[in-house]
Structure formats: C-alpha cells, structure tokens
C-alpha cells in the first residue's frame, strides 16, 4: 500500500510519501518520547510490582519484585482509596459540564463587540495565571486574606445569602428538582468554576475568532436567527475544541494538587517514601482517568464536526 514496485525498483506511492512526511513532522515528538518519557514511565510501571528502596551507593533505586502486593494493598487494605476515587470521579462528573458550558458562554460574550472588551478579556485571562504552578499555593494559603474573609463571613452570618433564599423559595414552591439542586451546587461554586475555566475560555475564544464572518452573513441573508446561527454554525465550528476542553478539564481536575488522591499520593511518596505503594495508587488512578477520558472522547467525537 505504501510501496509500489515498478521496473524492479521499489518506490514510495503518494500514500507512502505522506506517511514519511507524517513521521518527519512527528520526529521531534517521537525522539522526545522515546528518549525522555518512555524510560521513566516504564520504570514507574516496574515500581508498581516491586518493593522499592533508595540505594544511596548506586545512586538509584533498588527494586525487588513482589508481584501484586502493592495493588492488593491499594484495593483491599487501604481504607480510603476506593472511597476517595469514587468521590472524586463523581465530583468531576458534576463539575466538568458546568465548566464547559460556562466557558463557552463567556467566550461567546467576549467575542462580541462592546466597550472595554480588551480589559474584560485581560481579566478573564487572570485565572490562567492564578491557577497555575506556584500561584495556586499562595492563593489558598494566604492566612491574612483568609482571616479577612472570616470576618466578612461572621458579619454576614445573620443575613442569608441570596442563593439560599432563592433555593428556599423554590423548595417551598415544590420546583426544586434534582436538576435545580445541581444548578444551586454550581452557582455556589461559581468562583471555583470561573477559576478553573480560564484556559477553556481562551481556547474557545481562539476557535470562535477563526469562524469566517462570511458564514454568518450568508446565514443572516437567508433569514436565520441568532439562535439558529449558534447551533448550525458556531457550535459545529467550535466542536473540535469542545473535545479538547473536555479532556483538559477532566485532566486538570484530576491532577490538581488539592485533589484528595493526588494529595494522598504525594504524601505517600514524599513524606513516607513508599514509592511502590504510591506509584501503584498513581497508576490505578491514571487508568481510571484514562478510561473516563476514553469514554468521553468516544462519546463526543461522534458528534464533532471536522471541516473535511
């Protein structure tokens, strides 16, 4: 298929040349993956099945094969892991759709023309910075601000919050279904959601900016309403990046350092130096994440529209 035999000479077909070109484009990535990532990943996989000690003389790890002992400990002996895993997955399932909808909504607004648009966009870029690397620790550990927040909360203790009042009204009217309960959970977490959707907003924004305006003009002349334009043009055109955003949100949720399981893995690894046990937990965790991502990619990519 990739080669053709002609006059006793083997030469590449167009497909073959495309394959070669594809590999050339991938070359940096392949070199990097094979030389930097493969070894650490394989080594950490080996740790799952071994008892690991740090060997100071050899400057490396001393691994002794013990079979499934670490995995048994993760699933059967450790009292927290299973509960934490299901809890985190459930919370993720609740919050990711909210992040996606929120960020698409904000991106649509930010893509419109209005005064001070540059400023507002810059403000929505701030969560990207604030939720990254070293900033995230400073943000949450700031005891001075926390004490200020405490004072404000005490002052407001007598006055009920507006969402609470609304919720009470809806409950007494009998309108509070499970869906409304979900909405209230989301509304109460709006700060977390806004902080978690900085990247997604920018990804959507850059996708929205490359939709040719001529498409909207044509649709408008044909008499399409804004609602129809959204579902027939905007939504399909950004759908490839909805997939990216779902994957990113899921991963971001799972590898945050304030995630319960990540914290557990980190303490087991850094504080107690239980390398085998902690890598076993990490691998179980990543397999779970992989499965979730695989399922959501499988579901979404059926609906994704590629301009082909």
């Amino acid at each position: 298929m990739y080669f053709i035999k002609k006059d006793n000479k083997i030469s590449l077909t167009i497909e073959g040349r495309n394959a070669v070109a594809g590999y050339l484009f991938l070359l940096p990535f392949l070199i990097g993956f094979l030389s930097f990532m493969l070894l650490p990943i394989v080594e950490s996989l080996r740790m799952v099945f071994s008892r690991v000690r740090i060997d100071i003389i050899k400057n490396g790890f001393d691994m002794e094969f013990i079979g499934l002992e670490n995995l048994v400990r993760v699933f059967m002996i450790d009292p927290e892991f299973n509960r934490m895993l299901t809890e985190e997955i459930w919370r993720m399932v609740l919050i990711v759709p909210a992040i996606i909808i929120f960020s698409l909504f904000v991106a649509l607004i930010l893509n419109q023309e209005f005064k001070a648009r540059g400023f507002v966009r810059a403000v929505f870029f701030l969560p990207v910075i604030l939720s990254s690397g070293i900033m995230i620790g400073l943000e949450t550990n700031n005891s001075l601000l926390n004490s200020m927040a405490e004072i404000i909360r005490e002052g407001n203790l007598l006055k009920a919050s507006i969402t609470k009042v609304l919720e009470d009204i809806l409950v007494s009217e009998g309108a509070a279904s499970d869906f409304m309960a979900y909405i209230f959970v989301i509304v109460n977490q709006i700060y977390d959601i806004a902080m978690a959707s900085g990247i997604q907003i920018i990804i959507f924004l850059s996708a929205l900016q490359t939709i040719p305006p001529s498409m909207f003009e044509a649709a408008e002349i044909e008499g399409a309403t804004g609602w129809e334009c959204f579902w027939k043009i905007t939504f399909p055109m950004v759908s490839p990046l909805i997939l990216v955003n779902v994957v990113y949100s899921v991963v971001d949720y799972f590898i945050r350092t304030d995630n319960l399981i990540m914290a557990k893995i980190n303490t087991a690894m850094i504080m107690r130096l239980e390398f085998g046990f902690s890598t076993a937990m990490a691998w179980v965790y990543f397999l779970a994440v992989m499965i979730i991502i695989g399922a959501s990619v499988g579901l979404i990519s059926k609906k994704v529209y590629y301009y082909e």
Partner: peptide, 17 residues
C-alpha cells in the same frame, strides 16, 4: 502516547526523570 503524557503528571515520574 500523547494522551499519556497529558495525563501523567510530572510529579509521579519525577524520581526516574
């Protein structure tokens, strides 16, 4: 493999790296 390097956080392979 690309998905793998998205998901594996650097902390877990830190020691081997």
């Amino acid at each position: 493999c690309v998905m793998l390097i998205i998901i594996v956080p650097p902390q877990t392979i830190m020691s081997s790296l």
